[in-house]
Design a protein around this nucleic acid. Structure first.
Lengths: 213, 213
DNA sequence: AAAAAAATACCAATTTCTAGGTATTGGAAG
DNA sequence: CTTCCAATACCTAGAAATTGGTATTTTTTT
């Protein structure tokens, strides 16, 4: 344990009770000099800017931003901070995205204090901590990478489809020809390799659920 | 505060770290004689049976059961226990269902220690604690009550539709006529007052998300 | 400036879905 | 025992979606 190094930790999580719990749990860990809590990303960014914490514990779901955005913003504001996601999310795609975006760790809230401390220490030694699930190679389709290939218009139309609008209705709303909407729909289907709009809607709703739209 | 009454509390939550935090946070509250933690509903039920706790703090999402089921089972096993939902869920329908099923409180994890203690004390005086959202009368469609009116077959077919299967494919899988599937689909649409399968799929996916299927 | 991608629009054919009706069977509830 | 509902199945007509191809204009990227 590198307990001789005292670090500043910023914990961003809208679940106040959880944050208070963490605070109480880590309260007498001597290697933590400061443990600050922010309940929104905005608040977190303001604090991170001033505090320049060595470590940021970040919840994936925040009221004012989605996980990936939060991660990117924080790293821009405070590049020296190491970010560990601490969240209940467990989707492999989400975890992989966080890893790719430069997080040094991803912890689920199902872990215990011991595991948390281990991860904190590892992070300070620049050793990443990720759940084993992302090591499993059994993966073929990554929703996020797929959605990235949709253009703005296509995303817009995909969303309207998943709200139950017909092509004709979408056309009217966007002041476009129905034929144009049909073309867009066809392109969306091809790009996402889906075979009907039921699958498209299921796909879109799952994205919304996972908060990576 | 009724601090002179010492109660036994059971906390059921798969998020160990959160539970440890709560434990640490409530550790020196004298009105709590015992604070036991269970990580699954099964474990929780075993403990509740023996312990007969005055109070149960229950997470809505558990790995081995959904929220309503958990609530019902616990009340059967330990009828004298008051149950407070302590969860990140905030859907008004879910809250209302919990209230209807006999919970004495519903708390989101965004609250703080103070609010939690207040709710615990109230619960022991038989005073319920629910978020103000369910008092708001602006509600017309309750997904759960809607889904309840679907028959088994209809639910099954609705789910297959939301997986992207066509009527013909569903018919083949279930060894039924495609015409039968069409009839079922029509009845589903009518019962749920939806106008196309896109809306149906969105509806089903939201239910899955909310864990009230 | 040239090439690539996105957005737009059209035609035609086919499949799938939606909506109206009807009807038989079996089981559950009264 | 009868009445109600779920599950099954059929017919028909029309609406919507899917799939094939093509083409022009604008925007973005190289």
């Amino acid at each position: 344990m590198l307990n001789f190094i005292e670090i500043k930790v910023l914990h961003i999580d809208d679940h106040l009770l959880f944050a208070q719990g963490i605070h109480s749990l880590l309260g007498n860990e001597t290697f933590i000099r400061e443990l600050i809590h922010a309940q929104t990303l905005n608040e977190g960014i303001r604090i991170a800017e001033k505090l320049q914490p060595e470590l940021i514990l970040l919840d994936y779901f925040l009221p004012d931003a989605n996980g990936i955005e939060s991660l990117q913003l924080l790293q821009k504001i405070s590049p020296s901070s190491k970010v560990i996601l601490l969240t209940m999310e467990s989707n492999p795609d989400v975890i992989e995205n966080c890893k790719r975006e430069g997080a040094i760790g991803f912890l689920q809230k199902t872990i215990g204090k011991k595991t948390l401390l281990e991860a904190l220490n590892k992070a300070m030694q620049n050793i990443p901590t990720f759940p084993p699930s992302i090591l499993a190679p059994t993966r073929q389709s990554n929703p996020q990478s797929l959605v990235k290939i949709l253009s703005k218009r296509e995303k817009q139309i995909a969303n309207m489809v998943s709200e139950g609008l017909t092509s004709a209705e979408i056309a009217k709303k966007l002041f476009l020809s129905e034929l144009t909407i049909n073309t867009h729909r066809r392109n969306i289907m091809q790009k996402l390799e889906l075979k009907n709009s039921a699958q498209l809607v299921a796909f879109i709703e799952k994205l919304k659920f996972m908060d990576i739209s």
